[in-house]
């Protein structure tokens, strides 16, 4: 995803002369195409995220659309007040980009995991929050952010994520829930790079004779409430899947269903605080938190069995 992002940004910067990229001493082996092509619109602000974000707000107040780039929780949690006060409150065109959303930097430990970033950015004023599910969604998100600059948070996976959509042209409107497969028994709704696990889980369920669908919600703010309610009318169970703790997609879905008096069964799969003590590869950590294809599919089976018992 980070490759897709930087390729798109570099391309867009050819014609959009206001695009500016600031990195927090991270992104090497990724950002070079932009840095070499546009050295006057690139800065390494050093290991100082508060200053990087305040500085970005200052540049943005003078007409630039600034992208701040770092990994995991550094460009959000470390400088949250600068995002809140300097960027969002002023409604300035600054896009915060995090590579390694979730536990992509698994082996580096909890200090390098982004598992609370959605919960702290979603309540902020004027902000758009986007967590693409595959490289195609990443490209479209980058284009949309440049087309309509404003306070925004782009939460990316890391590298080598598979494309899940068949083609980029097949994505009609990125702002809506992306239904990749319909499912009348269960609909898995995910956000971010966990989409590949969700797809695999849906395939397992389908092989077991269950009508299982899966979808991606790249936009978390604004959230496609109408799309969710439409799903709720067509499936027995909605299960959210995200590489994030409470306060992200599961909270959005729960609130939306409740506020609209929908009684479709809803369950969520997310990270749990008691498991943050474990360190390992992203694959191992996903399994530990029940977020790999095996756990997702078995959880869906259990939910369906419980529902059958109850009715």
């Amino acid at each position: 995803m980070r490759q897709a992002f930087i390729e798109e940004l570099t391309l867009l910067a050819e014609t959009n002369l206001n695009l500016f990229l600031i990195v927090g001493d991270l992104g090497y082996s990724v950002v070079e195409p932009f840095a070499e092509r546009f050295p006057d619109r690139f800065l390494n602000a050093g290991v100082a995220e508060q200053n990087m974000t305040g500085l970005a707000a200052g540049l943005a107040s003078c007409g630039f659309h600034v992208f701040t780039y770092s990994i995991a929780n550094f460009p959000t949690l470390r400088c949250l007040e600068q995002i809140r006060n300097d960027v969002c409150y002023h409604n300035l065109p600054v896009t915060v980009v995090s590579v390694g959303g979730g536990m992509a930097y698994g082996n580096l430990g909890y200090s390098h995991h982004a598992t609370e970033d959605l919960a702290v950015t979603l309540p902020l004023p004027n902000i758009r929050v986007i967590a693409p599910g595959d490289p195609f969604e990443t490209r479209l998100a980058t284009r949309e952010l440049c087309k309509k600059p404003g306070p925004s948070y782009l939460r990316l996976g890391k590298a080598r994520e598979p494309t899940i959509h068949a083609a980029i042209d097949g994505i009609k409107d990125l702002r809506t829930l992306q239904i990749l497969q319909e499912g009348s028994d269960v609909m898995l709704v995910s956000t971010g790079g966990i989409l590949e696990q969700v797809k695999a889980a849906a395939e397992r369920l389908t092989q077991s004779g269950i009508c299982a669908g899966y979808s991606s919600s790249p936009y978390l703010k604004p959230f496609d409430e109408a799309g969710l309610l439409s799903i709720a009318l067509k499936t027995k169970i909605i299960i959210s899947v995200e590489e994030h703790g409470v306060g992200g997609l599961s909270s959005l879905i729960s609130e939306t269903l409740h506020r609209n008096n929908m009684n479709t069964l809803f369950r969520c799969l997310k990270t749990q605080t008691e498991n943050y003590k474990f360190v390992g590869s992203q694959k191992h950590l996903r399994a530990k938190h029940g977020l790999d294809e095996e756990h997702i599919s078995s959880f869906a089976m259990t939910c369906l069995a419980d529902l059958a018992d109850a009715t």
Binding site: Q50, G54, A57, G58, L59, E81, N85, D86, H90
Partner: peptide, 24 residues
């Protein structure tokens, strides 16, 4: 010029504004 109140915000913003002045 800018909303302020939380301390420690003004100088980083001004670094960006001054940098923009140099660039432009």
């Amino acid at each position: 010029e800018q909303n302020t109140g939380g301390l420690g915000h003004g100088l980083p913003i001004c670094v960006g504004t001054a940098l923009a002045g140099k660039m432009d």
